[in-house]
Simulated assay, not measured.
Amino acid sequence: MSEHLELQRLADLSDEELAEVYAPPAEPWFRVNFVSTADGAAQGSDGVTKSINNAPDKRVFDALRARADCLVVGAGTLRAEAYKVPRLPLVVVSRSAGVPPTLGDAPRGRILMATVASAGGLAAAREQLGEENVLVLGEDEVDLVELRTTLAERGWAEQLCEGGPALFADLLAAGVVDELCWTVVPTLTGGEALRMTRGAEVEVALRPVLLLEQDGTLLGRWLVERPD
């Protein structure tokens, strides 16, 4: 990718070209996708992202999912956003091992659980999802480095996370994230809405490598700078 950041019009890119500009530079690759308002709110007044999503964001959202081999999402976000069963494997990250209700009817193998040995819902998750689809990655805290490795060993090289903010902060603290895909919608909301990160304190340098624009919405790729 070019060292010079260039603004491009999203509308000028075909679907094939859009997929190409989001190609990862290495494998395995762990990217996180978020949308926020211009003043940093990662949710609307209704407490979910749907009220700040728009058409440009949806196009890139769909393109990233089309590229991905698997989707990683925290259980709280899955419940709050009422996720439906996606077309690609969905990895639920949960210390309690509770399967969100909207995913209860998923075909066997479509939903995986990344959890811990002390999880109260471990036995129920194994029965519902199948033991081979329940990843026990730690005693009391999910080992996120091991999660990335385990998913890559399953052949899932492009790993896409859609949050939420607490999981994103934990992933950054663990050094798992390679890239942030960030949409900024041209809206201000004020108030005390969640930011993209919450919880773990992190200081992570980012390098912008792509910036797209459509109707005032900015959509960028930011690579995590690794310390030497």
Rank of each mutant, 00 (worst) to 15 (best):
H4W: 12
E6W: 00
Q8W: 06
R9A: 12
L10I: 05
A11R: 13
A11W: 04
E17R: 06
E20H: 13
P24I: 14
P25V: 15
P25T: 13
P25D: 15
E27L: 15
P28T: 13
P28V: 13
W29V: 10
V32K: 01
D46F: 07
N53A: 13
K58S: 13
R59F: 00
R59W: 01
A63K: 01
L64T: 08
R65A: 01
A66G: 04
D69Y: 01
D69I: 05
D69L: 05
L71W: 05
V73H: 00
V73A: 06
V73T: 09
V73Y: 00
V73I: 15
G74F: 02
R79V: 14
A80P: 00
R87L: 14
P89C: 05
P89V: 02
V92Y: 01
V92R: 00
V93F: 03
V93P: 04
S96W: 01
S96E: 12
G98S: 10
V99R: 02
T102F: 02
P107E: 13
P107A: 10
R108L: 13
R108Q: 14
M113Q: 09
G121V: 11
A124Q: 12
A125N: 08
R126I: 10
E127V: 12
L137W: 07
E141T: 15
V142P: 11
V145T: 15
E146K: 13
E146S: 12
T149P: 00
L151N: 02
E153M: 09
G155C: 10
E158Y: 06
Q159M: 09
C161A: 15
E162M: 10
G164P: 07
A166N: 13
A169K: 06
L172H: 04
L172S: 06
L172T: 08
A173V: 10
A173L: 09
A173M: 10
A174H: 09
G175P: 08
V176Y: 00
E179G: 01
W182Q: 11
P186M: 03
T189L: 14
G191Q: 06
E203F: 13
V204R: 00
V204S: 05
A205P: 02
P208K: 05
V209P: 00
L210G: 06
L211Q: 12
L212C: 03
L212N: 08
Q214I: 02
G216T: 04
W222F: 11
P227R: 02
